[in-house]
C-alpha cells in the first residue's frame, strides 16, 4: 500500500541545534499517528517540514509520493493543518474566514454549506456571523476544524489541536478525528495528551531531543502503560 505521508532520513539543523535527527516514518491513509514528546522535542518541527514551512537540512518529506520541498503548492492541495492556536482574520466573521480558506483550497460553498461545516465543528450558530475578533480560543479552534474538514484533505496535520478545548469539545474532536480516519484521511497529530493519543491513535510515536525513539501500536498498550513508557523515555 502506498504511504500517504513519509519521511526519509529527515533532518533539520538550526544554527547550533539539531532539531530533527534522521526521521524515518511512513503513514498510511486512514491511520492516526500521534507524536508525543516534551516541548522542544521536535514535534512541531516535523509538522512544519511536512507543511513546507521549513526546508529540511537533509533528507526529505513526502506527501502522496511528492517531495514537499519541491512541490510546495501541489502537496498543500492534499493536506489540512490545525495549529495549536488557530488564528483567524479578526475583522471577518467566522463564515467569512471559512469561506476565504475554503475558496483558497478550491472549494466554493454556499452560505448554508459553510454554516453546516461550522455547526458540525461545534460553533454556535449565532457566533458564525460575528467577527472572529470576539471569539474565544476554543471557538477559533472550532473554525479551524471546520476549515480543515471543508477542505476534504487526505492528510490532516495537527499541532496540539485540543489545547484550550474543554473536555466536551475535546471529546467531540476525537470523534471527528475517528470519523475522518474511517473515511481514509491520514492524521498526524503532535500532542502532549497521552490519553487522547491512546484513545484515537493507531500508532503512537515518542520523540526526544529531535529523535523518534519509539513507535508503538496503540492497540497493544493501555493508557497507563503508555504513560509509564513515555515517562521512562523522558527521564533517561
Amino acid at each position: 500500500m502506498q504511504y500517504i505521508l513519509e519521511a526519509k532520513r529527515l533532518c533539520k539543523q538550526y544554527q547550533d541545534k539539531l532539531a530533527l535527527k534522521d526521521l524515518n516514518l511512513q503513514i498510511r491513509p486512514g491511520e492516526i499517528f500521534c507524536l508525543l514528546g516534551q516541548n522542544g522535542a521536535g514535534k512541531s518541527t516535523t509538522i512544519n517540514l511536512f507543511l513546507g514551512f521549513l526546508k529540511p537540512t537533509s533528507g526529505a518529506a513526502y506527501i502522496k509520493g511528492l517531495e514537499v520541498a519541491s512541490n510546495l503548492t501541489k502537496v498543500k492541495e492534499y493536506l489540512a493543518y490545525i495549529p495549536e492556536n488557530v488564528m483567524l482574520y479578526p475583522n471577518l466573521t467566522g463564515l467569512e474566514n471559512l469561506s476565504l480558506f475554503s475558496s483558497l483550497a478550491g472549494f466554493e460553498y454556499s452560505k448554508d454549506e459553510l454554516m453546516r461545516y461550522l455547526l458540525q465543528a461545534g460553533l454556535p450558530a449565532e457566533a458564525a456571523s460575528r467577527r472572529v475578533g470576539g471569539y474565544s480560543k476554543g471557538m477559533r479552534q472550532k473554525v479551524g476544524v471546520a476549515i480543515a474538514v471543508a477542505k476534504h484533505a487526505q492528510v490532516l496535520l495537527l499541532d496540539e489541536p485540543t489545547s484550550g478545548l474543554d473536555p466536551k469539545a475535546s471529546n467531540e474532536f476525537s470523534e471527528l478525528l475517528l470519523g475522518l480516519s474511517a473515511s481514509g484521511t491520514a492524521i498526524f497529530m503532535a500532542t502532549h495528551d497521552i490519553f487522547r493519543s491512546k484513545e484515537v491513535g493507531t500508532r503512537v510515536g515518542i520523540m526526544r531531543e529531535g529523535e523518534l525513539v519509539d513507535v508503538l501500536s496503540a492497540a497493544e498498550l493501555n493508557a497507563n502503560e503508555l504513560e509509564k513508557l513515555y515517562l521512562n523515555y523522558m527521564h533517561v
Binding site: 507543511l51 513546507g52 514551512f53 510546495l72 503548492t73 501541489k74 498543500k76 492541495e77 493536506l79 489540512a80 493543518y81 495549529p83 492556536n85 488557530v86 488564528m87 483567524l88 482574520y89 479578526p90 480558506f101 483558497l104 483550497a105 478550491g106 479551524g144 476549515i147 496535520l157
Partner: peptide, 14 residues
C-alpha cells in the same frame, strides 16, 4: 503577528 500566516500558507498558495 496576528498568527494567520500558517493557516494561509497551509493552503495551496505561495
Amino acid at each position: 503577528e496576528q498568527g494567520t500566516l500558517p493557516l494561509l500558507l497551509s493552503q495551496p498558495i505561495g
